[in-house]
Amino acid sequence: MVTLALVRDTFREALTRKIFWVLFGLSTLMILFFLFLLKIDIVAGATATVSLFGRPTRGSPDVNRMVRGVYGGIATFLYTFGMFLAVFASAGLVPSVLEPGRIELLLSKPLSRAHLLLGRFLGNILLVSLNSIYLVLGVWTILGAKTGIWSPVFLIAIATTTFIFAVLLSVVVLIGVTLESAAAATMITVALMIISPILAQTNLMMRLLSSEWSRNLWRALYYTFPKVYELGKMTLDAIQSGTFAGFTPIWTSALFGILMLGAALWIFQRRDF
C-alpha cells in the first residue's frame, strides 16, 4: 500500500510537468503517423504499394525490410531523444521530495528512508516504461495489422530502454540526494549518454593509444560507465537481424546502476533534513 502510494505520488507529480506530456505527445504523434498517414497494400505477401501522406512511394519496397526499418527508427528515437527527454523530465523528481517542509513530513511517516527513495525510483521507472510500452506496442500493433508482420523481437526495445533508463535514473537519484539539483543531475546524466558512443570505440582506441596506462585507463572508463550506445546498438541489431549478442554491456551497466543507487541510498540514510 505504501509503495503504491509513493508510485502514485510520483505519477501525480510527474504529470504536472509539461515535459512528460511532450514525451507522451511525441509517442502519440508517431502512433498516429503510422495509424493514419502510412498506408501499405499487401498483395500475395508482397508490398503492392506504400503510401505516405496519401501519395504512393516510388517502387515497391521489401515489406519486411521496411517494417524492420521502422522498428529501428523507433528504437533509435527511444534511445536518443526519448531517453534525453525522460532524464530531463525525471531530474527534478528527487530534489522536489527533499525540499524543506516536505521531506520532514515524509520522514515522520512509518516508512524507512530506503522505502521512500525506492518508491520514487520505481514510480519514475514505471512512468517512463509505460511510455515505451505505449509507443512500441502501439507501433508494433499498427504495423502488424497493416502488414501482417508480427515480429516480437521489436518488443525487446521496451525491456532495453526501461533497463538503460533505470541505470541512468540511478545517477539522477544519486545527484539528486547529494546536490539536490535537477540541473546538475541532467547535465551529468546526459554527459554519460554523450560519452557512451565515444567509450564504445574501445577496439579502435586500443590501437590508437600508445601507452599501456592510457589503454588501461580507457578500459577502466569503458567498463565502469553505462553502455547506453552499445545497448541501443544491440537492440537495433536484434531488431534488424534477430540476434542479441554479448551480455557484457548489460551486466556492467547493471552493476554501475546498482552501485549508484546503493550510494544514493547510503547517503540518503545518513543525511540530516
Binding site: 500500500m1 505504501v2 503504491l4 502510494a5 509513493l6 502514485r8 505520488d9 501525480r12 507529480e13 504536472t16 522536489s96 525540499e99 524543506p100 517542509g101 516536505r102 520532514e104 513530513l105 515524509l106 515522520s108 511517516k109 512509518p110 516508512l111
Partner: peptide
Amino acid sequence: PENHRFPTYFTGAGMLDFYASLS
C-alpha cells in the same frame, strides 16, 4: 511541521489520502 510545503498538485482530499496511506 512548521513552514510545511505540501505539494500543490494535490487536492485537499488527495493530500489526506496520500499521507494517510503512508501511515
